[in-house]
Design a protein around this nucleic acid. Structure first.
Lengths: 260, 260
DNA sequence: AACCCGGTTTCACTATTTGGGACACCAGAT
DNA sequence: ATCTGGTGTCCCAAATAGTGAAACCGGGTT
C-alpha cells in the first residue's frame, strides 16, 4: 500500500501516532481529549504521553494539564527542511519569481495524499514568515496539488485519489475522481494547472510541477492572486523559475514515495 | 538533573536519540556513520533506523543508502511552532521592529543549554525564509543567549553554564563561567545584552529578554548588524517591541524548563 | 582464494510494554 | 455530609516487543 503511517511499528509507531494526533488537533489538549483520538487503551496512551513529554516532543502545561507539540520538533524539523525538501534549492528562484510577479508564491511537495507547503513568498511588503512551511492542504483542489497529481504515475495516483475527501469548498471545487482525471489530462497536456477558485472563493492560482530528470514529480510552484488579471501573465516567470529549479535538481536524489 | 534528552525512556527514547543524532549531522548519512554516533549495538540501531524510516521520520535514499530527516517532522513541527513558540505572538512586532531598524532581527528561546532561533527578519530586501527557524546556537556568546541567561534563576542557570563548551570563537568570546557571571550581572542591571563580536568577527548585536508577568524568561529578541553604528541607537525600537510582546504574553503559559 | 567492510538477518534470551482494573481527586448534585 | 460522574494516575502479572552476539552476504582489495 501507500505511505500511510499505519500504526504497526511497535512502540515507536504508537508514540508517533499519538504525537501526530495531538499535533493535528492544533491546540493544547487535555489527556481526555487525546484519549478520544487515541486507538490505544488509557494506561498505554497515558504512558506514551509521559514518554513523549519528557523527551521534549510534547510540552505539558502543568497548570492547565494540557499537552502541545514541543520545541524539540522544531529543532529536528530544521534539519529535515534543509536536507529533505526542495526549499534550499528553490530559494533563490522563488525570490526571483516573487519579485517578478509581485504575488504570493508557494513551493509545495506531495506528502502522502496531501499537499505539504515547504516555502512561501508573500505578495508584496510584509512577510509573515514560516507561516506556511509545514502546513498541509488538500491535493485535489489546490493548484500545486493538481499540478503534482497530473504527473504522478498511475500506480501512485490511484491510491492518492482514493484518499481525497472530495469536500466541496466552493461551487468550483472538483468533487469526483472522474472529473479529476479529465482535469489532470488537460493539465498534463498544458504543462501547468489552474486553481479557479476551487479552494477559496476569490483566490485563483497557476501552478507548475517540478520534475526530476527522470520525470518524477518532486514538487510544485504556484503563483496565487486575488486580483482580476489573467493568470497566464505569470506563466513565463513561473516557467522560468521551475526550469531553473529542475536544473539544479540534477544531483539531488529525492524520496521515492516510500511505496513498497 | 536537567532536561538532557537522556536515553532512558525505553524504546521511544532510543529512537528519538538516534533520530536526533542523524539530524545533528546535518547531511544524509550512511548506516555506518550513524553507528559511530549511536550508543546502541549494530542490530538495535539498524532496527531503530528501519522503524523511523517507515514512519516517515527519516528518509532512506535507496541509491546512496543514506538517511536524512523526513518531511513528517516538518509537518509536526509546524504545529509545535504555532502552539509552543513565541513566534506567532511576536510576529507583528518583529515586522515593526525590522522595518524600524532595517537590520536583521531574531527571536530566540532557550532550549536546554542552547539557543533556539524561532523566527527572523532579514536586514533589508531579500528574505531567505525559515532559514533560521529551528536553528540552534551557543548560549554563552550570542546576544539572545546572554540576555536570557542573565534573567534565569540561579537554580536553572548553574546547570546551563556547566554545559557550555566555552569555545573561543573570536578574541572577544567570554570563555569562563566566572567572567560570564560578571557579564550577566551587568546585563541584568542594564536590562539588555550586547554581543561585541563574541561569536563572529564583524558581527555585533543588541538583545533584550522577553519576560513573563511573573518574571520568567520566555525568549529574547535581538538586532544584529555588521555595520559600524552604535548599537544603542536600536534600543528604543527594540525595547518597544519587547514590551509589546511581553504584553501579549499575558494569558499564555509557557514551558517550565521541564526541570524536575 | 583469502580477507575486509558495510549492510542485513537470525534467534534464543530478556526487559519493556501492555491494559484491565483499582485508586485518588475534584466539582457538582442530592 | 454523602453520593456520583468525569479525569487523571498508578499497579502488576501476562504478553509482547526489543535485544544483541554472531552468522551471513555481496562486492571490493590484496
Amino acid at each position: 500500500m501507500n505511505v500511510q503511517r499505519g500504526g504497526s511499528d511497535g512502540t515507536v509507531g504508537k508514540a508517533l501516532e499519538v504525537l501526530d494526533r495531538v499535533a493535528a488537533l492544533g491546540r493544547p489538549v487535555r489527556f481526555s481529549e487525546v484519549m478520544d483520538q487515541s486507538p490505544y487503551p488509557k494506561a498505554t496512551t497515558y504512558r506514551l504521553l509521559q514518554t513523549l513529554t519528557n523527551q521534549g516532543m510534547l510540552r505539558l502545561d502543568p497548570d492547565s494539564g494540557t499537552y502541545a507539540p514541543g520545541m524539540r520538533l522544531v529543532r529536528m524539523a530544521h534539519a529535515a527542511w534543509a536536507q529533505s525538501s526542495l526549499a534550499p534549492i528553490a530559494q533563490p528562484y522563488l525570490d526571483e519569481l516573487s519579485e517578478a510577479v509581485g504575488e504570493t508564491v508557494h513551493l509545495a511537495q506531495l506528502d502522502g495524499a496531501q499537499v505539504l507547503y515547504v516555502d512561501k513568498r508573500n505578495a508584496t511588503t510584509r512577510v509573515p514568515m514560516y507561516s506556511d512551511a509545514g502546513k498541509v492542504g488538500p491535493a485535489y483542489c489546490t493548484g500545486v496539488g493538481k499540478a503534482m497529481l497530473a504527473f504522478l504515475p498511475e500506480a501512485e495516483l490511484a491510491p492518492v485519489l482514493a484518499q481525497q475527501s472530495w469536500h466541496r469548498f466552493t461551487p468550483n471545487t472538483i468533487t469526483t475522481p472522474e472529473a479529476m482525471r479529465a482535469e489532470l489530462a488537460e493539465i498534463r497536456a498544458a504543462g501547468h494547472a489552474y486553481d479557479r477558485e476551487e479552494h477559496e472563493p476569490g483566490i485563483r492560482c497557476i501552478a507548475m510541477p517540478v520534475l526530476s530528470a527522470k520525470g518524477r514529480v518532486q514538487g510544485a510552484v504556484s503563483v496565487t492572486t486575488n486580483g482580476p488579471g489573467p493568470l497566464d501573465d505569470y506563466l513565463p516567470a513561473l516557467r522560468a523559475a521551475v526550469t531553473k529549479i529542475s536544473g539544479d535538481l540534477r544531483d539531488w536524489r529525492f524520496p521515492d514515495k516510500g511505496e513498497e
